[in-house]
């Protein structure tokens, strides 16, 4: 099964707190939270700011630009459909919005081209009609 297809067991189960993240990805927006008290950002959605503890977080749309903090190449994953997609790159990306890091797949990146520090940008992939996933691709 390719990256374009999402089996139903991989479709997220959104809750009231994170639905905006998944629906944003379906619309082509990377939705993260910004804290108006400390000015820092976070992914994934939470009630309190994980940096300063304030309850003053609200969704903003991130630029989608970031830098790879680290990565791995997944060469073994026993769960369908991932077992049919290996090898693929997974990266932790520090977003340009301070404080926010997101782990995401980089389906179009040649594993041999992955490196720490590479500039990347978000891309979006539908999970179903309402929800989507955030991926990244090289911006270099």
């Amino acid at each position: 099964m390719t990256w374009a297809e999402t089996p139903k067991w991989v479709v997220p189960h959104p809750n009231a707190e994170d639905r905006e993240f998944w629906e944003g990805a379906r619309r082509g927006e990377l939705r993260i939270q910004r804290c108006s008290t400390c000015g820092l950002h976070q992914h994934y959605p939470r009630y309190l700011c994980s940096h300063c503890g304030a309850d003053t977080v609200a969704f903003v749309t991130a630029s989608g630009n970031g830098t790879v903090y680290s990565f791995t190449v997944i060469r073994q994953n026993g769960v369908p459909p991932f077992n049919e997609r290996v090898p693929f790159v997974i990266a932790t990306v520090d977003l340009d919005e301070p404080g926010a890091r997101i782990l995401a797949a980089m389906p179009t990146l040649d594993p041999s081209a992955a490196r720490i520090g590479m500039r990347v940008q978000a891309t979006f992939r539908p999970a179903n009609d309402e929800l989507g996933f955030v991926d990244f691709e090289s911006a270099e």
Partner: peptide, 15 residues
Amino acid sequence: YEFPTGMTLVGAYAM
């Protein structure tokens, strides 16, 4: 948030 990417337990340590 990590499961749908295809991340694994080994992958986390690898990263």
